[in-house]
Design a protein around this nucleic acid. Structure first.
Length: 107
DNA sequence: ATATTGACGGGCA
DNA sequence: GTGCCCGCCAATA
């Protein structure tokens, strides 16, 4: 499951205060359509040192109901890192979307 | 080997 | 702008 490793690698590159969408990670890997698979991989990332809480939906909404062990768990972590939320309860993705330099790293 | 599920994304109403 | 439906990939049964 090299796919999973790649997802973890990219997610780990997300700096504090920034977030990436599943689809964006999927694109960096090489499969832009694999957004679902990326999320699936993230689901079991708890065993890794990966800030999976920085991975959100393309529209800035967080993961489905309490996927981190708490409904407000992810939001709390992100806010603590400096991520600003809108009144809709969504991340201001416009500002916090992380842009990788170029090194997509897909070796 | 096929079928179903799941932390998604994009397109259309 | 939001909401619903379909399609994509990978993993599990």
């Amino acid at each position: 499951m090299n796919f999973n490793e790649m997802v973890y690698e990219i997610a780990a590159q997300i700096p504090p205060g920034f977030v990436m969408s599943y689809g964006q990670i999927a694109g960096l890997i090489g499969n832009r359509r694999a957004s679902r698979a990326v999320g699936y991989a993230m689901m079991r990332c708890t065993r890794k040192n990966v800030p999976c809480h920085r991975v959100v939906y393309r529209d800035g909404s967080l993961a489905s109901g309490g996927a981190f062990g708490g409904e407000g768990r992810q939001r709390a972590l992100l806010e603590k890192e400096g991520v600003t939320f809108t009144e809709d309860g969504r991340i201001d993705i416009r500002r916090h979307r992380y842009r990788p330099p170029i090194a997509s790293r897909a070796s």
